[in-house]
C-alpha cells in the first residue's frame, strides 16, 4: 500500500519537473510565451513561501508582499549601486526581505488568528509607504529603474540571461529548484513536523513543551527569506521594481494563489499561481474590467472550492 503511494508520488514529481523543464518547448505553441512561464515560476515560488507559513504552520500572513517587494528593491538597488552581479543582487534581495521579516516577526508573533493577519497587513504597508515616499532612492511611484540583470560569469565562460529568454527561464528554474528543495527539506525535518503539530493543535503543542512562539517566529522568518528571494527574481525578470509589489493587494493575490491551488499540499500554490497568472494575463487583454473578474474569482473559489484545485482532485481520487 505505502509502496503504491510512494510510487504514485514519484511519478507525480517526475511529471511536475518534466512539465517545468520543457516549458520553452510547449508554451509558445499553445499561444503563451516563455516569459509568462518565468512569471508563473517566480510568483509560484512566492505563493509557496506564503503557503510554507499558511498551509504548514497554520498562521495567516496577509502582508507577505512586503518581503517580496523588499527582495525586489534589494536586488534592484544592489545591481544599480553596489555591484553589477546577478548573484549578489539575489543575495541582497533575500537578505533584505528576510531580515526585515525577522525583525518585524518578533512583534507579529505576539498575536494569533485574525489579529495575526491584521498586524501583518498593517506592518506590510509600512514598506509600501517608505518605497512610495523615499523617491530619491526608490523612484517613488514610478518605481525603481535603471538596472538590468547581468550575464552569469563563471570565469571560463558566461551565460547570457538578459537577451535570451530561454536561458533566463532555466536560470530561474534552477533557483526555484534550489529553494523548493530547501523548503521540502525543512518540512521533512523534525522542525517541519513541529510546524505541522502547531498547525493541528497549538494548545497541545504548547503542553508538549514546544516553544510555540519561537517556532512560529522561525517559520515566519524562513518564509520571509524565501519571499525575499522570489522578489529578487521578480526584479530580475522585469528589470524593474515598483511599490505595487509591496502593496497588500499583492499579498492578497499570493494568498489567493495558495488557496486556489490547494494550501494543504506542497505543490498546490504553484498550480494556483499558474492559473492565476495566465487568467489575469488573458483577462487584462480582453477587458478593462478585469479587476471585477479577479474579484469574482476570489468569491467563487472561497464559496465553492475552499480546498483548492488539488483538494478537489484528491477527493476525486479517494472516492
Amino acid at each position: 500500500m505505502s509502496n503504491q503511494v510512494n510510487a504514485r508520488k514519484l511519478i507525480a514529481l517526475a511529471c511536475i519537473w518534466a512539465v517545468l523543464l520543457l516549458v520553452p518547448y510547449w508554451m509558445p505553441p499553445l499561444g503563451g510565451y516563455t516569459a509568462l512561464g518565468t512569471r508563473v515560476l517566480v510568483l509560484g515560488l512566492a505563493a509557496m513561501s506564503v503557503n510554507f507559513l499558511l498551509g504548514f504552520t497554520g498562521v495567516l500572513s496577509f502582508g507577505h508582499a512586503a518581503y517580496f517587494g523588499l527582495g525586489a528593491y534589494g536586488a534592484g538597488l544592489s545591481l544599480k549601486f553596489l555591484a553589477p552581479s546577478t548573484s549578489i543582487s539575489l543575495l541582497m534581495g533575500m537578505l533584505l526581505g528576510g531580515l526585515a521579516g525577522a525583525l518585524l516577526g518578533t512583534l507579529i508573533v505576539r498575536r494569533r488568528g485574525v489579529y495575526f493577519a491584521m498586524v501583518t497587513i498593517a506592518f506590510g504597508q509600512v514598506f509600501y509607504y517608505i518605497a512610495f515616499q523615499w523617491s530619491s532612492l526608490t523612484g517613488g511611484d514610478d518605481g525603481l529603474r535603471g538596472f538590468s540583470r547581468q550575464p552569469l560569469d563563471f570565469g571560463l565562460f558566461s551565460i547570457d540571461i538578459l537577451s535570451n529568454t530561454n536561458n533566463f527561464y532555466y536560470f530561474v528554474l534552477f533557483c526555484f529548484a534550489l529553494v523548493v528543495a530547501v523548503m521540502g527539506f525543512i518540512l521533512r525535518s523534525p522542525f517541519g513536523r513541529t510546524m505541522l503539530a502547531i498547525r493541528e493543535n497549538e494548545r497541545r503543542a504548547r503542553f508538549l513543551g514546544i516553544p510555540v512562539e519561537r517556532h512560529i517566529w522561525i517559520a515566519f522568518t524562513l518564509s520571509c527569506f524565501f519571499m525575499g528571494f522570489a522578489g529578487a527574481l521578480y526584479a530580475l525578470l522585469n528589470n524593474f521594481a515598483d511599490p505595487k509589489g509591496l502593496h497588500f493587494s499583492q499579498s492578497g493575490d499570493f494568498v489567493m494563489m495558495a488557496v486556489m491551488g490547494g494550501m494543504r499540499s506542497f505543490w498546490g500554490p504553484l498550480l494556483g499561481a499558474a492559473v492565476f497568472v495566465i487568467l489575469q494575463d488573458y483577462l487584462s487583454s480582453i477587458t478593462v474590467n478585469w479587476m471585477s473578474f479577479v474579484g469574482l474569482l476570489f468569491v467563487i473559489v472561497v464559496l465553492f472550492f475552499p480546498r483548492g484545485l488539488l483538494g478537489v482532485v484528491r477527493r476525486k481520487l479517494v472516492s
Binding site: 495567516l60 493577519a117 488557496v259 474590467n289 479587476m291 468569491v299 472561497v302
Partner: peptide
Amino acid sequence: VLIRPLYGRDPLYSLLLTFGLAFIFEDG
C-alpha cells in the same frame, strides 16, 4: 448571501472573500 456560509470556517476565507469584494466594488 456571501458571508453567512463562511461563519463556521477559518477566518481566512471571509478575509479572502471580502478582499475579492473590495476589487468588485472598486471596479464597479
